[in-house]
Design a protein around this nucleic acid. Structure first.
Lengths: 350, 350
DNA sequence: TTGAAAGCGCTAACAA
DNA sequence: TTGTTAGCGCTTTCAA
């Protein structure tokens, strides 16, 4: 591959001048500029970003560490992050952790060696051992947390207002007549999972419905736990009339369980899911969901990260909280006929 | 951030020795090695891969250029690619093209500036202007094509045997009694899309069913075209009794159209889809699909790429063709009662 | 407006 | 076994 030196020779100028042309900056005589550009063209010269990075101490690489791209929430988020990155001339180095801290540590360490300019991070649940995060921060590599807040540290973040989303969804379930509502939560080491549970509790309390511990099951955001815990809830004595599932993968598991149990949704059991469910709208039943602005979480988080990279870290963490949206569909059609219910009843989000 | 020089000073050795310790290679006295490691630890030293790359001319970065990560086929592929990369100490730089050549050119150019060691590529459809690909190859950056073969060049690739998959699926539809089978294809600039159509044609020919041009519609692998073309096929005069859809996104569109038309699947219209459909198995109906080994395409393609990076390019392109699998589900239950059909009838894949 | 040259942090060849 | 040093391709300061 051609180097800047060869371009300089070919154009009959010094490397400094070529550099100036490349960076569009300094005062170069149009004639000279023209000659340099022709040399670049004819040599198919691609500036060596590695050499540039070594000198300038920035790579124009951003790390993106997420949980699992096969969870349909994350592709949207990734697209948002990529769009923001590309608009500012950055490329994304991406990696999945499967929510394992060891993997998070490992990829963040490698990204650090690669000298990424910053990281957007969906933290893995952990019991506090986050030295890798504080070390990173200490070495002046900015991090913006997406979707989840780590328990200990206060950091830059862009998340969904999960308490509000869960509350809104629960109010809807209650408004169509449900009293015995079960919930399957995510891993409660995660603030997000806890928040969704809090929304559940708040809504029940506000409606004067007492909390029934047997209706609360702790899952892990994966298909299997949705499947197993739904069966447990349904078969375990006092079967709920509605289920609130804390994410889409567990939602699919719950649907499968309901099918296998020979129950009908919503007639035998209503279902509402936090997160859009893959395939929703094309199949039956259509599922009532709390929709997170996944794309925007990625986009705004990355934008925030780039702002910090390019103009220095602010003193206090910036925390952005985006509002989710409730989409009501047939899986929560009111029991005993639609006549007893009107969509306006559900709009209690104020 | 600490440098190798500081580590050397702290350990009381030369940078050369530290380098030797880092790369685990040369003969270093255990005692000295120990001292160096302690220095590394206490300084929280992370080797600067940028500087290393400049010298060694390899970045341990792999480019992954795909069509669209929100198409559920690609997350699987990406996980396979990442696993292979990580196992060999590489990181993935990822980007989506939305099947637009301009975007493909742009990101590949940036990746080239970043000096990625190689690229796994899902090519965008185009009318032959692939200079960016041949230039890349010429500059000794290996490329392995995944899932799709570019029309002109012969390149390293890992793809699914689409002709075989489509044939197998069509044989099944025919075996349960269908004669008027419609197809919605992908963008026929893509070999993959063409292959699936060829499989369709082969199976019809083998069964002695004459080709009906009106039953062939050209889509673009996106939701909307599946939706629109299904409506056209159904409402356009001679409605088919079964539909073969060339990918999952169009499959979802087709399902939605069928729903809106008030038709029942499979009673009014049978449906088979190439690619696993998101949500399939949890909803109704469950869809008969041709399942591609997406993870393996990513994994083996990346493995192949790394092999070429580390031991030089072979003379002739390596082309790997993986076998898809037919999963028969309720969307193609035979018409006129299950009694007339037995699963064994479908197993004509020999 | 342009050229010359130091230096970014590392590797690897060579010397000691 | 360890140390010294040139040089990877660029940017940037300083001098001309």
């Amino acid at each position: 591959m051609a180097t800047i030196k060869e371009v300089a020779q070919r154009a009959g100028v010094s490397v400094g001048t070529v550099s100036n042309v490349l960076r569009g900056s300094a005062n170069v005589r149009p004639l000279v500029r023209e000659r340099v550009n022709r040399a670049i063209e004819s040599l198919d010269y691609h500036p060596n970003q590695i050499a540039r990075s070594l000198k300038t101490r920035q790579t124009r690489l951003l790390g993106m560490v997420i949980s699992d791209i096969t969870n349909p929430f994350f592709p949207q988020l990734a697209r948002g992050a990529e769009d923001a990155a590309l608009e500012h001339g950055y490329l994304l180095v991406a990696s999945n952790t499967d929510d394992r801290v060891e993997r998070e540590k490992r990829v963040m360490s490698v990204m650090r060696q690669q000298r990424v300019d910053g990281i957007v991070l969906v933290v893995a649940p952990s019991e506090g051992e986050c030295d890798h995060i504080s070390n990173m921060l200490q070495s002046k590599t900015p991090i913006v947390c997406l979707d989840r807040l780590p328990r200990r540290q206060r950091m830059h973040s862009v998340i969904t207002d999960a308490v509000y989303g869960a509350e809104m969804c629960m109010r809807h379930l209650i408004s169509v007549g449900h009293r015995r509502i079960g919930i399957i939560t995510g891993n409660l080491q995660l603030q997000t999972a806890e928040d969704r549970l809090d929304g559940y509790k708040n809504a029940l309390a506000a409606a004067g419905i007492s909390l029934e511990p047997a209706l609360i099951r702790t899952g892990d955001f994966r298909f299997d736990s949705g499947y197993i815990l739904t069966k447990q809830l349904v078969l375990g004595g006092k079967c709920p009339t509605a289920l609130f599932i804390s994410n889409c993968m567990m939602g699919l598991g719950a649907l499968k369980a309901i099918k296998e149990l020979g129950m009908r949704c919503p007639d035998d059991l209503a279902l509402a899911v936090f997160d859009e469910v893959p395939g929703n709208g094309s199949f039956s039943p259509e599922i009532t969901t709390v929709i997170q602005p996944a794309y925007h979480i990625g986009y705004r988080g990355t934008e925030l990260l780039i702002r910090h990279i390019e103009s220095g870290e602010p003193e206090t963490p910036v925390q952005i909280r985006l509002t989710p949206e409730l989409r009501i569909r047939e899986s929560t059609l009111p029991r005993g006929g639609a006549a007893s219910w009107h969509p306006s009843l559900a709009k209690t989000g104020d």
